[in-house]
Simulated assay, not measured.
Amino acid sequence: MLEKIQKLAGENKAVLVCPEVMGGCPTPREPAEIVFGTGEDVLDGRAKVIDRSGREVTELFVEGAYKALETARKHNATLIVLKENSPSCGSGMIYDGHFSGNKIPGEGVTAALLRREGFKVISEQEFASGAFDIR
């Protein structure tokens, strides 16, 4: 699947971004999870993103989401493919905020913002399977 995405990027049909890096998160970085909600809740100020050490990184995740939104608008994106389970990019499942490995239905901060702004968002699994409607 990664080869397919890289091929599209090489043909100027895809743009590769990482909202977490765009927001100022270091690489490598500690795992982070949304606590007390989902990406929608983070955007509305009802939940936070915390890393495994307990440091709040909400601002970095929100900033990265808005930079990803700017990029999507700049390139007139018609389809956004995001990494499932991520506190930024999860489009259907995210970790539960307890660093327990348990997943819950929900979306990450970037996925929530992009959907809120009308973009079609799917996971990398949906993209790989071809089980999506481009409209």
Rank of each mutant, 00 (worst) to 15 (best):
E3M: 12
I5M: 15
K7W: 07
A9V: 14
A9Q: 13
G10N: 14
N12S: 10
N12V: 02
N12F: 08
K13V: 02
K13L: 08
A14R: 11
L16Q: 12
L16P: 14
V17Y: 11
V17L: 09
C18P: 03
C18G: 04
P19I: 07
E20A: 09
V21T: 03
V21G: 01
M22R: 03
C25L: 15
P26L: 11
P26E: 15
T27P: 01
P28M: 10
R29G: 03
E30V: 12
E30L: 15
P31K: 13
P31M: 10
E33L: 11
I34H: 09
V35C: 13
F36Y: 11
G39A: 06
D41C: 10
D41S: 09
L43V: 02
R46Q: 12
A47M: 02
V49T: 06
V49W: 06
I50L: 07
I50C: 07
S53A: 15
G54T: 04
R55F: 08
R55Q: 12
E56R: 08
E56T: 07
E56L: 01
V57D: 00
T58P: 11
T58A: 14
L60Q: 05
L60Y: 13
F61A: 00
V62Q: 01
E63I: 08
E63D: 14
A65L: 00
Y66R: 14
Y66G: 01
K67F: 05
A68P: 00
A68K: 00
E70I: 02
T71M: 13
T71Y: 06
T71A: 11
R73S: 05
K74I: 03
K74N: 07
K74G: 04
H75N: 12
N76D: 11
L79C: 08
I80L: 06
I80D: 00
K83H: 13
E84P: 12
E84V: 09
N85L: 05
S86I: 04
P87N: 08
P87L: 13
S88T: 09
G90C: 07
S91C: 14
G92H: 05
M93W: 13
I94W: 02
Y95M: 14
Y95H: 14
H98I: 03
S100Y: 01
S100R: 03
G101P: 06
G101R: 12
N102V: 13
I104S: 09
G106W: 01
G108C: 13
V109T: 10
T110K: 08
T110G: 12
A111W: 00
A111L: 02
L113Q: 01
